[in-house]
């Protein structure tokens, strides 16, 4: 069972990932997809003890209250080993560099190329077709 957390203030993001991942994970295994519209909600979820270990966090950068960079730092304070993908509509070298420096695993720009994302997941999560 793969546990993925998505943080994006666009409400339709959850539906998109759900449908896309359904196909992608069809021959990999069960997927537990959890989405949040803001970073604080996500942090509260991650601090819970009753959740299975999180395999990947996909986060937007531009969000109200707390942005993706701050979330990345706070997540690493909890667990530095969780893979963290930045997903942003801001395709700028500064953002890429900042994400890199803060220890983001990858930087994806919107619109998201789900074929590429699939390849990355297979590599980073060492997923083997079952």
């Amino acid at each position: 069972m793969i546990h993925i957390v998505i943080v994006d203030d666009e409400a339709d993001t959850h539906l998109l990932y759900k449908l896309k991942f359904k196909k992608l994970f069809a021959n990999i295994g069960d997927l537990n997809l959890v989405s949040f519209l803001n970073a604080p909600d996500c942090l509260r979820y991650l601090e819970r003890k009753d959740i299975p270990p999180v395999d990947l966090i996909l986060s937007d950068i531009n969000m109200p209250d707390m942005d993706g960079f701050e979330l990345l730092q706070k997540v690493h304070n909890i667990n530095a080993n969780i893979p963290f993908y930045m997903v942003s509509a801001y395709e700028s070298p500064e953002f890429r560099l900042k994400a890199d420096n803060l220890g983001a695993t990858r930087f994806l720009s919107k619109p998201v190329d789900f074929h590429m994302l699939g390849d990355m997941l297979r590599k980073d999560l060492a997923l083997q077709p079952s």
Partner: peptide
Amino acid sequence: VAHEIRNPLNFVLNFSEL
């Protein structure tokens, strides 16, 4: 502008592929 367009475009592109 790019940012504002890329967000909805993300949905339009990926959903229409679906």
